[in-house]
Every structure is written in structure tokens, then in C-alpha cells.
Design a protein around this nucleic acid. Structure first.
Length: 284
DNA sequence: ACCCAGGGTCGTC
DNA sequence: GACGACCCTGGG
């Protein structure tokens, strides 16, 4: 049923920053500049009007509860931005540019599969593939006379073959997704255990055992789903922006970049990464 | 038409 | 630890 939740006097919440900073793939801009997306079994529209954010949705659960968790609304980004801005001017400027970014608390399963698909791929195509998977194997939801589809569970993907995935356009990632689905069904991958794991290093090592998950994808999962804000995913854009700003435009290896980020940005390096990524990619 | 690059990972050397 | 291969597609 349709529900509404309104947030007044908000700071640090800008839909375009949140949804276009590369952390998520299932939110789409509407004609009125609001965004509509799918959160578990719920369709939600997010509209910003001056200092007010309006969440409207067809939700099975309480929309307020969903939004507080998903958008991490109890986290104080004002303080974080103030602290990070003190580090250096490059970061301070990118924070100004993407001042409304928030790191989402996304579903682990969906994030895992999405970032396996992201390997050597571009964002428009990643979005298309995820949409096809959802439309083919997810459940239909109706919101304001339009159709939306949930991201399918491991069980809903149980009988999908490698060839089926290939036909949906996954390319060479088909086997990786297939194996990950099957291992999850056999409990060789334990999603609940991963969610409970507190220690970042242990968590990363467990993620690295999953087919299609290397260092970069593991870090994205940790940051975008498991709230490990200290990790610093290094993709081509981040590698580029860090090399340009801090290494006189001499391309550094990912390991060097990560070491540098940890020293420069500290335990909130992941947030710094999002501001820098958004700024560099959006001004390209 | 052609080429390149994209939120990398994996097997092989 | 370095190097190529890998599906596919949008943009130059």
C-alpha cells in the first residue's frame, strides 16, 4: 500500500548525488527530477523540495523504518564532512561538489551480484543487465500504475543456467554469477554470517573466496552494503583522480593508492572515495 | 566502419 | 607479481 514519509530541514541529502555516485544501479531519475528505485520488496520515490525530502512508496513494511535504515538517516554527515574537509583542499572541494552524498545500506545479496557484474563493465550496461535479471526472475510490484521488479533471491535464481545468464547479456561474468548463486544455495556462501562479521580483514578474506569477487568488488560490497566506511575501493576513476591530484598525474598501482588513502583519509576513507569518485567522474 | 574503454577477475607464466 | 584474455555495448 502507498505510504509517505517526510523529512524536514534536511542537510546532506541530495538525490542526484546519492544515486549518481556509482554505489547503486536500480534508481532512475523521473521527469520531475525525483528518483524511483526498489528497496527489497518496496518501490520508493524520493523527491527533494528545498529543505524537505519526500519519500513516497508502495511498501510492505513501514516506509519510515525502511528509509532510516537504507539511507542511514541517523548518521550525521555534517560532522563527517567538516572533519574530512580539514584533511586537504582537494577533498574539501570534492565534498562541496557532492555535498549531498550519503552511503546507502544496501541489500547484501543484490550488492554482491551487482558488483560481480560490474567487473570491466560500464555503468549504463550494468544497470541494463540488473534490470533484465530482475524483470525475468524477480517479483512484479505496482507503484503509481507502473511496473517494477524486485531483485531475485538466490532461490529464485536456483534454476537459471549459465546460458540463461549469457542470454541476458552478462558476458563472461555468467559463470561467476551462476557459481555464486549455487554456492549460496549450498550454504558454502553464508550471507547471514557475512553480515555479522565485525572484523574488516576477516570479512574481506571471506568475500574474496566468492567467484567473481576480487579486491575491488569486495571493497565495494563492504562499503555499499556492510557499512565498512574505512575501505577504499580503487577502480579506474579513483586510480585516476588520486594519481592526478597527489602523484603529479603519474599512474600509481592500486596497492599504492590504498596505502595512500588509508594514511591520508583515515577511518572514513570510504566516504572520501565517494566524494572524489563523484567529482572526478561527473566533471570528466 | 573502426577503435576504445568501462566501478576487474582469473588463470598462467 | 606481471600479463592477457574475456563478453558486450555506448561513445568518439
Amino acid at each position: 500500500m502507498e505510504q509517505r514519509y517526510i523529512l524536514e530541514n534536511v542537510q546532506s541529502f541530495e538525490p542526484v548525488h546519492i544515486f549518481e555516485c556509482g554505489q547503486c544501479f536500480r534508481w532512475n531519475k523521473q521527469e520531475n527530477n525525483s528518483y524511483t528505485g526498489i528497496v527489497k520488496n518496496n518501490v520508493i520515490n524520493v523527491k527533494k523540495e528545498n529543505e524537505r525530502v519526500i519519500f513516497t512508496g508502495n511498501c510492505n513494511e513501514d516506509i519510515k523504518t525502511i528509509c532510516i535504515d537504507y539511507f542511514d538517516l541517523n548518521k550525521n554527515y555534517e560532522n563527517i564532512k567538516t572533519e574530512l574537509s580539514k584533511i586537504d583542499n582537494y577533498l574539501a572541494n570534492s565534498i562541496k561538489y557532492g555535498n549531498g552524498i550519503r552511503i546507502l545500506h544496501q541489500d547484501l545479496w543484490e550488492t554482491l551480484i551487482s558488483f560481480i557484474i560490474s567487473a570491466n563493465n560500464n555503468i549504463p550496461r550494468i544497470k541494463t543487465i540488473i534490470e533484465r535479471i530482475s524483470k525475468t526472475y524477480g517479483n512484479k510490484l505496482i507503484f503509481q500504475d507502473k511496473e517494477y521488479y524486485t531483485f531475485p533471491t538466490p532461490e529464485e535464481l536456483a534454476n537459471v543456467t549459465v546460458q540463461d545468464f549469457r542470454n541476458l547479456g552478462l558476458g563472461f561474468r555468467d559463470v561467476r554469477v551462476y557459481e555464486t548463486v549455487q554456492k549460496t544455495l549450498r550454504k558454502e556462501i553464508d550471507l547471514e554470517q557475512l553480515e555479522k562479521e565485525k572484523d574488516a580483514e576477516t570479512l574481506r578474506n571471506k568475500l574474496l573466496e566468492i567467484p567473481g569477487v576480487g579486491l575491488k568488488v569486495a571493497d565495494c560490497i563492504m562499503l555499499f552494503s556492510l557499512k565498512k566506511y574505512e575501505v577504499f575501493p580503487v577502480d579506474v576513476w579513483v586510480r585516476r583522480v588520486i594519481s592526478e591530484l597527489y602523484f603529479e598525474n603519474v599512474e600509481q598501482k592500486p596497492q599504492i593508492i590504498q596505502k595512500f588513502a588509508k594514511e591520508q583519509y583515515g577511518n572514513l576513507a570510504g566516504l572520501a572515495q565517494q566524494y572524489l569518485f563523484y567529482w572526478r567522474r561527473d566533471t570528466a
